[in-house]
């Protein structure tokens, strides 16, 4: 996410000075890293240079002088264009999780242990997110997004764990080809590969009705 776009979005609500914008940002993204003051002012300077924001006036009463900014018409156009364009889905291959998992599996460095530790870390993070009090409905949305991503990572890790369990040698080679596949059937079949076919029907309800 670009800070400039978010600052423009905040400015579109009405004229504001740097501190207002920082506070606005930190309220919208209260699970994320707070916006540094230096970054606010650098961003405002860039927006002003590009004609997307302009100085509205300067407040002098009491404390230090404060510059109040407002969005310009081309700033509004730029904001609308940003909102219109869907966000780029996270690029595969660049993620630290993928880098580590692939390395752990390819190197055979206790892959099952790696998956278990990564799973625990993800679940803990998910639990913390679920428990964080949502200050307003949109901050809840931001949490939901993070949770959905963690869930996707966990499903992918489960596929990775399935390959490890099924075949420690072939697994590393196959892993990247199957990144997107939430292939439970595959995992299950591998899981029972050593059981007798006569006893193990694919359909559990069948098994139960015979019992």
């Amino acid at each position: 996410m670009s800070t400039a776009d978010v600052v423009l979005a905040l400015l579109s609500r009405g004229p504001a000075h740097g501190y207002d914008l920082k506070r606005g940002h930190d309220t919208w993204f209260d699970q994320g890293r707070p916006l540094a003051f230096g970054q606010v002012y650098a961003t405002l300077a860039r927006l002003e240079r590009d004609g997307l924001a302009a100085v509205a006036h300067t407040e002098t009463g009491g404390g230090p002088e404060r510059t109040v900014y407002e969005i310009t018409p081309s700033g509004r156009a730029r904001l609308a264009a940003w909102i219109d364009e869907p966000a780029e889905p996270a690029a595969p291959g660049a993620d630290e999780l993928i880098r580590k998992t692939v390395a752990a599996l390819r190197l055979g460095l206790d892959p099952a242990g790696f998956v278990a530790r990564q799973r625990a870390a993800h679940l803990r993070r998910m639990r913390a997110l679920e428990q964080a009090p949502a200050t307003d409905p949109t901050s809840r949305l931001v949490v939901e997004h993070a949770v959905a991503h963690l869930d996707a990572d966990l499903r992918w890790l489960e596929v990775a764990a399935g390959y490890v369990a099924a075949d420690g040698v072939a697994a590393p080679v196959r892993l990247l080809d199957h990144v997107a596949a939430d292939d439970h059937a595959d995992v299950d079949a591998d899981d029972h590969a050593d059981e007798s076919a006569a006893d193990h029907s694919d359909d559990h309800s069948d098994d139960r009705s015979r019992a």
């Binding site: 278990a116 993800h122 998910m126 639990r127 899981d191």
Partner: peptide, 16 residues
């Protein structure tokens, strides 16, 4: 469901 597991205090994972 991972989000359900994430509401627990402890996860016990069974394999085979």
């Amino acid at each position: 469901d991972n989000t359900v597991a994430a509401r627990s205090d402890r996860e016990v994972r069974l394999v085979d």
